[in-house]
């Protein structure tokens, strides 16, 4: 029963990244990478919950914010072909 939830989360990230590789349109890839980022935030939270110095949770918070901003920036770049 060791590492049960973390194993399932890593397998879930692998399945999601399969869709990111295969996806027919660019929006499938963006959706898959966004979901994989959310899974990574959950994984970092699980590892940081049991670790001795508590800064992994701050890492997860920053990763969640960067994930959102990266998704919006990529969408803006695809729609307008520029970031301005």
């Amino acid at each position: 029963m060791k590492l049960l939830t973390a194993t399932f989360l890593i397998v879930a990230v692998a399945i999601i990244l399969f869709r990111a590789i295969k996806g027919p349109t660019i929006y499938d890839r963006i959706l898959a990478v966004n979901s994989a980022g959310t899974c990574a935030v959950i994984l970092v939270c699980q590892f940081g919950f049991f670790s001795e110095p508590g800064f992994f949770l701050d890492t997860a918070l920053v990763y969640a914010l960067i994930n959102f901003i990266a998704t919006i920036a990529i969408l803006k770049f695809i729609e307008h072909r520029s970031l301005a």
Partner: peptide, 8 residues
């Protein structure tokens, strides 16, 4: 999360 990954 696992079933959601399968759905994706």
């Amino acid at each position: 999360v696992f079933t959601g990954a399968l759905g994706v």
